[in-house]
Each structure stands twice: as C-alpha cells, then as structure tokens.
Design a protein around this nucleic acid. Sequence first.
DNA 1: GGGTTTAGCGTAAGCGCTTACACGGCACCT
DNA 2: AGGTGCCGTGTAAGCGCTTACGCTAAACCC
Lengths: 395, 395
Amino acid sequence: MGYELVTLYDVARHAGVSIATVSRVLHGQGPVRDNTRDRVRSAIDELGYVPDGAAQSLARNRKDVIGLVAVEHMGLKPDQYDIESMSLLFYDAVIRGVELRIREKNWALLINFLREEEDMAQQESVQSRLLALSGKVDGLLIGEGILAPQTLAKLARRLPLVVVAGDTAQRAVDVVSADNWSGAHALVEHLVVDHGRRRLFHIGGPATAPDATERRLAMAAVIEANPGTALTGSYTGLFSVTSGREGTLAMLAAGGELPDALVCANDQMAIGALRTLAERGIRVPDDIAVVGFDDIFPASLCEPPLTTVHQPIRKLAEVACDRLAQRINDPTLRPKQELLPTELVLRSSCGCPPGTMERWEVRHVARRKPTGAAKSGRPLAGTAAVAAEPLTAER
Amino acid sequence: MGYELVTLYDVARHAGVSIATVSRVLHGQGPVRDNTRDRVRSAIDELGYVPDGAAQSLARNRKDVIGLVAVEHMGLKPDQYDIESMSLLFYDAVIRGVELRIREKNWALLINFLREEEDMAQQESVQSRLLALSGKVDGLLIGEGILAPQTLAKLARRLPLVVVAGDTAQRAVDVVSADNWSGAHALVEHLVVDHGRRRLFHIGGPATAPDATERRLAMAAVIEANPGTALTGSYTGLFSVTSGREGTLAMLAAGGELPDALVCANDQMAIGALRTLAERGIRVPDDIAVVGFDDIFPASLCEPPLTTVHQPIRKLAEVACDRLAQRINDPTLRPKQELLPTELVLRSSCGCPPGTMERWEVRHVARRKPTGAAKSGRPLAGTAAVAAEPLTAER
DNA sequence: GGGTTTAGCGTAAGCGCTTACACGGCACCT
DNA sequence: AGGTGCCGTGTAAGCGCTTACGCTAAACCC
C-alpha cells in the first residue's frame, strides 16, 4: 500500500480515449466533444489523477519553478546557527513578497540559503550547489552581490537571473535594489542638519555586503559635505544584535568624548546598541542618537522607538519577479539595474520628540562621483536630500 | 543568444563516448577508465553542462524536492497584506529550520503559503493548488490543521505528508508539534500559583488554529484546577499586533475591575496589548500581568520584557523532515504523532522581578480528559506542571 | 453529388535522463 | 589453446507527458 502512481495512460484507458485527448481536456486546448470531456473528467476524478511535474517540465521544456537564493551573513559556527534570532530578517519578507507575486504566474518557489562562513569558505561547493539548483528552475533570484563575479557570470550564462538587493554597479546582470545610498544619505543628513549632530560613530555591516557599503559611503558623503562633522570611529559588524552590542562596547572602550550619534547599518545592530547603552545608563537620544536601517518590525517597539530607513521589500520582490519573467520570455534583453526609492522613518531615537512617527519617501539623490567627476563629461548635480511630502504622520 | 541547452548527448559527442558513460562519470557509478573519466570531466567543464532536473526526476522516479505549505491567518484583504508585519512569524523560522535540515539530504525546498481569508474561502482552489504542488514534490510538510480532514486525507493518499505544528488529535497522518498544551499550562500555572493572579482575561487565536485551541484549553484547565481563579472574559484575535490591541481595548471597554492577568495566545498579540496598556497608563505587571506564546525575537525587547513559551522550532523542523524522509522510504509506516517539549521563558511581564531571565523546559503534562475520562478504561494522572531544572539563568 | 472544410480524435515522436542488458576484449586459469 | 570471468563501454528501452501530424466522418459549398 504505497502511493500508486496514476498516469495519463490509466486515465485514458479508464475513459476509453487516447492520452492525447486526456491531455487536451486537462489543458482545455483543442476541440473535444462535451460528452468525451465529461467522461475524461470523471475518470480523472475517480482515479485521483495528478499530472507528474517532472514529465510535464520535460515535455514542455519549462519548469514553472524559480529559485530564490538568500545570502546570510553570520559569525556563528554552523552548529550554533540560531534560527530564531536570524528570523525576521530581510529575506523572510523577500520570500513572502516573491511568493505572493509568482503565485499569480502559477510558478513555484524553490528556496535556498547560502550562509556566509558556512558556505563561502568553499566557493567550490557553493558553485556546485547553485548549479544543481539551476537545473531545477527556469530562473533564479539571487540575493546580494556576495558571489564572485565569475560565479555569477557563469550562472547568468546558463539561465535567467536577477540579483535582488545587490550591487547595482554590476552592469552585466539584472539587478533590483532599494536605494540604500539615498536612504542612508537622507537619514544621516537628518541627524546632521536637523539635529545638529557632529560626531558620528558607525557600526557597519560585513565588507562583503554591498548594501552595507552603500550605507557607509552615503554617511561619508554627508560628513564630507558638512564641515564640522566627523566620523569619530567605526566598527564592522555582522548585522546581528550581538554585533550591535559589540560595536557599542568598542565605541565606549575607545574612551574620550562620547560621539553624539551612532549610525548602525541595520536595525538589529541598532537594537543591540540601544540595549547596551541602556545598561550603561547612557540616554538615547539625549546623550547620543541612534539610528538603524531596514525598518524591521521590532524597530517600532524599542525604547526609544528607532528612527530608520524603510526598505520597499514587497515592491522589490515584485519588480524582481517581473524582471525575471521578462528575461525568461526574452533572453536577449540587455541587463538593467533598477533602484527603488526608500523611506525615511522618523521616530524618536534620532532626537525627534517622543511620539514622532513620520515617513518621508526618499527619491533618488544624485550621487557625487567619488573621484574624477569631471571626466564623466556631463555635469553632476550636487548632493541634495530630497524629502518629498510626508507620507504619513501619525498621532 | 538565448540560453542554449547542453545535454548529455552534447557532452558524450564532445568526449567521444556514449551517454551512458557520461552518466556514469556524473554519478561516480560503474567502472570507468581513468582516462575516459578525465575526458568526460573536461567535456563537462568546457560545455558547462548541468543535468536537467526534470529529466532526472522523470528517469529516477524521484524528485528530491519537498514542499512546505505554510498556513497564515490574516484578517486583511489580500491587497492590504502587509509583508513586513507578517514577517518574523513562526513559519519564517520553520522555513529556515527545514531548509537547514534537508540540505544535508540534498533535497530542495518548495514553498507555498496558504493565506486564510484569501484562500480558505474557496476550498476548491486550495485543493487544486495543493494537488498541483503535489505533482512537483516527493513529499509535503504541511502547516497547522486548518485543512478539511478529507482534503488532507486525499493528499496523504497521494504522497508522503507530515503535518507540522498541527492538531495531534489527527490520528490518520503523521504530525509533529510542539507541546502547546503543556507549555500554556505551565505558563498559566506560573501566573496563578507563583504570582497569585486570579482574574484572567484571554486574547485567543483564530478558532481554526489548533495550537490556539490547545493554549486556550490548557488555560481553562488551570483555572478549573485552581478554585478562586476565573476567566473574566476573552477575545478572539488573529495572531496579529492589531488583534492584541483590539483585544485589550475590548477588555478595557468591558469595564468593571481590571483583570490581574492577560493571557495572549501569541507574542504578537501580547505586544499589541503591552503597547495599548502603556498608552492608557496601565502598569505591567503591577496592574496587570501580560504573557505571550512563541518567544519571537521582539519578545525580549518589549517593555517590560515578555514572559512567554518558547517553541522548539528548529527541533520541530528537524523531526518533521526526518519523519517525512522515513515515510518516503517506507510508505507503509503507520502514522505517528510526536509532541516536542516547550520551554517556559520567564521575563518580567508576568510579575517576576525586572531582569529575570529564566528558561524551564516543560516536559509533557498529563492531560485530563475533558469528559468521560472514566470511559477510557485506564486511569489518567491528574494535571501537574512539571518544571525541571532551569536551563539557563542569565544576569 | 463530388469536392473541400473542419471538428474530433488517435498515433507516434520526442523531451533529457537512468539503467538493464549486451558485447567485445583482455587477463587469467586449467 | 580453449574456456571463464570481469572490466569498460555501448545500445536501447523506458520514465510520463506534450503536441505535430494524420486520419475519419460529418458538414458544407456550388
């Protein structure tokens, strides 16, 4: 009493027709007499027939499955990997967003996590994992820009591929990202311009994370553009609460005058910082402002509520899926990089009054070329944070 | 310049061998001369050959893919579905846990969400979605016990299936769940026995969620076993922060003396409650204790930190995957229901002193038969919360 | 009424892979 | 030298499905 496999042939025999007719009924294609259709339908019901996905894929040369590869940064040993504290990260929301979008297309979603430290050590095994995955899908959504460019290129030659939340400087592949730079720029500018913060400390993300890099560069740009402000120090974390704690301890251990703003590359680290500061009796935002990035759910629960930058994750997922669909339909498309606007979310950890809850959409901020801007030929606008209408203002 | 498909034939031709030989090299099976093996290997490399998953599945009659169906309760219209606030739910952790386990087995994971309200309305479409899914996988992990029993049975007849976090009363299929009843029992008993709370209010989960039912029943059992305690009222929520808020408002609106404990069926609702109470200037735990369930990440960040019950999600995922593997190997296995121990996590929202952080593993608590216990023939032990050694005690 | 359509269905050729089986050759035994 | 065995490889038969093509019979045209 195993699971007996009912095939098209069984249905055909049962209904007294050929397999072609069953297939036609199944897909509503081709002319079939009503009478015949009914016979086939009831045969399908009676036998409990379900078409085999593998056989369909093979015959159709199309799998209707896409893969999502999420890259996670972690400092833990694999056996210490703590599911609970990794949850609610960025990718959980991406997964939901993607799933929501592709179900309209009747695709299925294959999930794969690449965990840094665990996997990255042997790029070899990562490659083979990805290749094996690529044999099972029509296209791939791949997180971040952590993979070696040649690995990415190799993959992109084999099948449709869109990088999600990756490095938009990558010009050889499709990329869909949130505008990290502009978001971080607006955030730090808010700290400097609106709250007069001058001495900033940075707790950054892993060097391998392109979004962390963007955020750091944006902060640097604001500092450079505002004489009198300075980066008093920085710490490189791993996007975890623990990293935030360690970064804060490092800042404190440095001694000297306390910086007046702590810019964290994500919310988890900001939360770690908030807790550490609270334990030391350092007041936020009075003694020091703290800001994060991502606007994860707990950001609004902190004490004080965290000022941060909201990522348009759902939009991100939608655009990425759509782009992938386009590429699957037309492989010759030239790669495109898309940047989605972020939102500045003002709560009170930045110095805004308690109870503040404002959201400002951050439109693209023209970015100053790091060097040799003149060479580019066309003049670049200076940096300018453009904060449009407030989107919401609660309370 | 599309994505040209390299097949086994191409490799064979290129290496001057037959396709059987290439296949053998690929899987390291059967004797192949070193010289030949090398030629084939380099042909594979040069052509960038990757075996087609569909063809392999078809030939092997095995897909090496399992599906995970997550069921979400939601009160929102589909277009209002808020990814961010749904994140960090139970299933995000389950997905991670499952993925972690099956990668050892070299399986892939297909994700599917079933969203209540959106999907449940038409059981019809749910069925067809699940059937279509079942054609693409070797087995299914299915969340909760929300599906109509006959749908489940129909599915279970077709392919290996394990219910995760579902109703363990289901005896016809494999089920792996956390011991919600015992966890909730220990939690409420803690409130009543250790903190002397007497007047409880309950914010429960959806009636369709078996775990919510378990938690409610356990609470009722404690109340029944402790004369002098009473349930002053209850509210049925949807496991969301908003529901927690609404439930709290309902409690407040009821007027009369404030209950001295608020038992929420999950952490999100407890968080909603905490915020609402804070706004009203009601002190926790002095005026009223609040407890949750699940121990999601933000539970430790609340003010005051939330006392709750920790679910062994990773263990849950592991056991469920292993069980599924067993059933795939041997379809004749008789269904088994497994209950995993939970942990009581004491922080301070229950009345324990600030800074408390204790975890107690809750072993199985013998459950009193609701009615007709005598009929069962064998005597049942009375309810007794067994709190073993404290597992950790921080600070 | 002979010819041309067309609806309705069956036949069969794949899709890219795995694997049972066959077969040639060499090594080894008697 | 003839037999026996095994190693290394090729041949071919599927796996369950889609779909181009072909055929039959009824419907339609002038």
